[in-house]
């Protein structure tokens, strides 16, 4: 286990390094740089623009700039945004918890909704409720978040005022106000996410219920509820846990639309603004934070596999 952890940590460092190189390089290739964005449409003479780029340090070779950035980054200093002059680390420390909280609550909600309903569908395949669930899953899955989000905002502001607010307050400041701020966005994310979990749980559970070890358990006289919810479900959860892990990693950095619609000052919104401004020092720092969550989520999934499937322990 410790060996696995060490190996994964080393891999994580490699992934983060490659990611930072990629973003730094891509940042210089895409049209428009931060100097032009800061100058705006009024433009400037070529001489003045060159002087401005020099002031921002953009005239230095790419490798030198990257080396400088990396030197500071390994010491935990992500520098100051050229655009806003704010400390990038401080901005990310403020934005990350917002996205992280929404991702955690949304995934928990999706799991709470998705797994029991998926199991029910598998156990009662073909029943009216199973068909209804499959239909609803399809609807939840098909409606884009920017449509469902706007509907939630409208419905919440008109009929569910106790669950609606346009202003995010951290949990540490006011738990109740925090709950108001995140309940609708989390529901908007959790419904399509739970649809995926329902479908995945249902199909893997149906396969598991047809495995020979299930027949063996039944022949040995194990009670049906124990067969279904211990033996079969445990076997079926492997792919579901992988899905949840990927879902969680994607959510932390992929909440741009939801954050925009619900006015949440999270990382996705910050990245969107920074990309528009070509503020790549910020984009890299935020991307590394998101990648770290991805890696951590995958690591957790890797550790969960042997717990769910004893055969994996032997492989380790």
């Amino acid at each position: 286990m410790i060996l696995l952890l060490g190996r994964r940590l080393l891999e994580a460092v490699g992934v983060l390094f490659v990611l930072s190189v990629l973003i730094y390089t891509i940042g210089t290739l895409v049209p428009g740089d931060i100097a032009q964005q800061m100058t705006g449409i009024e433009g400037a003479t070529p001489e003045r623009m060159a002087e401005f780029r020099e002031r921002l340090g953009l005239d230095r070779p790419l490798l030198v700039r990257y080396a400088d950035w990396l030197g500071d980054a390994v010491r935990g200093d992500f520098g100051v945004s050229l655009f806003s002059e704010r400390d990038i680390g401080a901005d990310i420390r403020a934005q990350f918890p917002v996205s992280f909280e929404i991702a955690v609550v949304s995934v928990m909600l999706a799991v709470i909704i998705g797994i029991p309903l998926g199991v029910y569908g598998a156990v009662h395949t073909g029943s009216i409720l199973d068909r209804l669930l499959r239909g609803l899953s399809l609807i939840f899955f098909s409606v884009p978040t920017f449509v469902s989000g706007v509907l939630f905002v409208w419905f919440g502001s008109m009929f569910l005022k106790p669950f609606y607010t346009s202003y995010y307050i951290p949990f540490t400041e006011d738990p109740l106000a925090n709950l108001r701020a995140i309940s609708l966005p989390c529901l908007a994310i959790a419904l399509p996410a739970s649809a995926s979990i329902i479908q995945m749980t249902r199909s893997t559970m149906i396969s598991s219920l047809q495995e020979p070890f299930i027949d063996t358990a039944r022949v040995k006289g194990v009670r049906e509820t124990r067969v279904r919810y211990l033996h079969a479900l445990r076997d079926a959860l492997g792919p579901v846990v992988t899905l949840i892990g990927l879902m969680f990693g994607a959510l932390v950095g992929g909440l741009i639309i939801v954050e925009q619609i619900f006015n949440l000052p999270g990382l996705g919104r910050g990245v969107l603004v920074a990309i528009g401004q070509r503020d790549f020092p910020y984009v890299i720092a935020a991307s590394l934070a998101i990648a770290t969550v991805y890696i951590a989520a995958n690591l957790v999934v890797d550790f969960l596999y042997p717990i769910l499937d004893p055969r994996q322990r032997d492989q380790e």
Partner: peptide, 13 residues
């Protein structure tokens, strides 16, 4: 508040 729909919701609430 960036979106018109979100603005109107906040105003109505």
């Amino acid at each position: 508040i960036k979106e018109d729909a979100s603005m109107v919701a906040a105003l109505r609430a």
